[in-house]
């Protein structure tokens, strides 16, 4: 135990302070929100993988998750709702030496930005896409979205969600992602190791992080506070270290049902970049 509130704190205490825009802490995220946990895990991944600080780039969209750019001290671009992936695409293509992470929420990536996700996966664009899936639009007060479980309550599904949600790992696998994992923020150590493992890899990598949203989703659906949502994960999590592709359809998320977490896809595919470099060679070779 250290300081009490009245004592001025040394500027650097936490081991990540030098990797954070620490003067702007505390974050705007609600008590019990897990986004900060995911951000910390990503920072760890960068550190552990030895990514040079100046090579780290985070692109956010709009929503709670995108606020990562205001706390993680990297080159950071807070763009428009749904457009994290195409912004990251242009950025990565024009400076492939950068380590580019598109970090956004489920609504951003899969509702308004869904088209970009599937096309970037299809191209095997060289970016890591991190989805904070908290099952609703948290920042705007808890509306239903593309990952809201069937039957779940939200301000726009007051009688229970009549729609079925996306199964994100299944979608990512089907559209061409080379690496797909799902963790909850409770699995923080596995999450950290995942980031350490994948930040330096090539191709379109996708990590889904199930994250408590106590103020909007948790309360509305009687799951409770952030810590209670974490306990909910703890109770329901089923770890599958490697799911065969034929099994990936069985990773749907339903309220009160087991949640399969793990690394689901890990495969090699030529990236857009690799293929385009050959286009350049052909264009230059054949026209000289």
């Amino acid at each position: 135990m250290t300081a009490n509130a009245e004592v001025a704190l040394p500027p650097e205490l936490h081991p990540y302070d030098h990797l954070l825009r620490s003067a702007d802490l505390p974050t705007i995220w609600c008590p019990g929100c897990g986004i900060g946990t995911a951000v910390g895990a990503l920072i760890y991944g960068f550190e552990q993988a030895g990514v040079p600080k100046e090579k780290r780039v985070i692109v956010g969209g709009i929503g709670c998750s995108s606020r990562i750019v205001f706390y993680a001290k990297t080159d950071a671009y807070h763009t428009t709702h749904g457009r994290t992936i195409p912004f990251a695409t242009g950025l990565k293509l024009c400076n492939p030496s950068l380590n580019v992470v598109a970090f956004a929420g489920d609504g951003d990536l899969f509702a308004i930005g869904g088209n970009h996700f599937i096309h970037a996966a299809r191209r095997n664009m060289d970016i890591l896409v991190v989805c904070i899936n908290n099952f609703n639009y948290g920042m705007t007060g808890g509306q239903g979205g593309p990952t809201t479980p069937a039957g779940a309550l939200s301000t726009t599904t007051p009688y229970g969600n009549p729609e079925f949600p996306f199964n994100l790992p299944n979608l990512a696998w089907a559209t061409g992602a080379t690496y797909v994992a799902r963790w909850t923020t409770l699995d923080v150590r596995r999450l950290r190791n995942t980031f350490a493992d994948v930040v330096n890899r090539h191709g379109f990598r996708f990590v889904e992080i199930l994250t408590p949203c106590p103020v909007s989703f948790g309360k509305t659906n009687k799951i409770g506070s952030g810590v209670e949502e974490m306990e909910y994960y703890q109770a329901l999590e089923v770890l599958k270290s490697r799911v065969e592709s034929t099994e990936i359809t069985k990773t749907d998320i339903e309220l009160g049902k087991p949640i399969v977490v793990g690394t689901f896809v890990d495969r090699e595919r030529e990236t857009f970049r690799e293929r385009y470099v050959r286009v350049v060679a052909k264009a230059r070779g054949s026209k000289s």
Binding site: M1, T2, A3, N4, A5, L9, L13, H14, L25, P26, C30, P31, G32, C33, T37, L186, S225, G226, V227, M230, E231
Partner: peptide
Amino acid sequence: TVHVIELRCKECNFCVQF
């Protein structure tokens, strides 16, 4: 030894619980 930066803590209980 555990150190807490109290000004940042939001009483989410994650550390206490887990």
